[in-house]
């Protein structure tokens, strides 16, 4: 843009600079510092070295938390990506009323998690919930879902709810990716006599792989930090269904152990960073770039 006005750029971005310093940089540095201290917010922080990290790594709840969160991420991402791909392909057809379908699939994304959790908890109820009633017709169950004493059943039930809530979001991105695939490729495949299923696996999926990769990276980072879904869906059943998000919440805002909570936060950050790097390394094995 004009040379004369170059410095106006600073004026326009100044809110961002202030916001970055106050709401991003300072909190990160401060969080790093207090993770090495005992800090209850009312008394000044006491330097304790690596004590919080050692305490955290010796907590059974931390490892249970990682176990639960990994299981959750695995189930959630498998469901979301696979169903999302199928839905995107189906929704990519030029059919009358297709936009009504798009709205319906997107609806769960919009609705507040607390309201949604009321409905799902009621549907999951082993005594009078509608799901066990419906499952009986196809010869499944009965399940106890989130009311189960088995951690796997609880985590899987919450993951299924989250997948229902989030699949519309994944689908919209995949749909955008599909619409970028040129029609020539599909036309060429048709002339070569490829059927719908073959076309899906040999053409659509490879061309969609960069978008799937993006969604998988973002999805894993988000799901590793899950808090809301577990906080609102958990029942007191005796199963250990701690996740890292609720562990940090409890230590910070229930027990006022802000140093320990920060240490757990940084440990989870390292785990997320490692997972992201692994995914990035695996990228060239399956992601196809034109």
């Amino acid at each position: 843009m004009t040379k004369k006005h170059k410095n106006w750029g600073w004026v326009f971005v100044s809110p961002y600079i202030i916001g970055f310093l106050v709401f991003s940089l300072y909190p990160i540095v401060f969080s790093g510092y207090i993770s090495f201290t005992d800090y209850d917010i009312f008394n000044p922080p006491q330097w304790v070295g690596f004590k919080n990290y050692i305490t955290a790594l010796n907590m059974a709840d931390l490892w249970m938390g990682f176990r639960n969160v990994f299981t959750y991420v695995l189930i959630l991402e498998t469901l979301q990506i696979s169903i999302g791909c199928i839905l995107a392909v189906l929704l990519n057809h030029a059919i009358k009323g297709i936009s009504a379908f798009r709205v319906m699939y997107f609806m769960p994304v919009l609705t507040p998690i607390v309201a949604v959790s009321f409905v799902w908890t009621y549907m999951y109820n082993p005594m009078y919930g509608v799901l066990n009633y419906l499952f009986k017709f196809i010869g499944l169950g009965p399940f106890k879902f989130t009311f189960s004493g088995l951690w796997v059943e609880v985590v899987a039930s919450i993951a299924v709810m989250s997948a229902w809530k989030g699949v519309g979001y994944t689908t919209i991105y995949l749909l955008a990716g599909l619409q970028n695939i040129s029609t020539d490729v599909n036309e060429a495949a048709r002339i070569d006599g490829a059927g719908a299923v073959r076309k899906f696996f040999n053409i659509t999926l490879p061309l969609l792989s960069p978008m799937i990769f993006f969604l998988l990276m973002k999805g894993v980072i988000d799901a590793m930090q899950v808090f809301d879904a577990f906080y609102v869906m958990q029942q007191a059943t005796g199963a250990n269904t701690t996740v890292i998000g609720t562990l940090i919440y409890n230590n910070a805002f229930e027990y006022s152990k802000f140093g320990l909570a920060s240490a757990i936060g940084w440990i989870s950050f390292i785990v997320i960073a490692i997972l992201t790097l692994i995914q990035k390394r695996a990228e060239k094995r399956w992601v196809y770039y034109e």
Binding site: F20, P27, S31, Q225, I244, G245, A252, G265, F269
Partner: peptide, 25 residues
């Protein structure tokens, strides 16, 4: 500066919530 904006997207909010709470306190 724009690169820092992209970086802040990757910071887990689990880490940010505690210091921000202390700040507002």
């Amino acid at each position: 500066l724009f690169f820092t904006a992209l970086c802040t997207m990757m910071i887990p909010h689990n880490i940010m919530s505690v210091p921000q709470y202390i700040m507002w306190h």
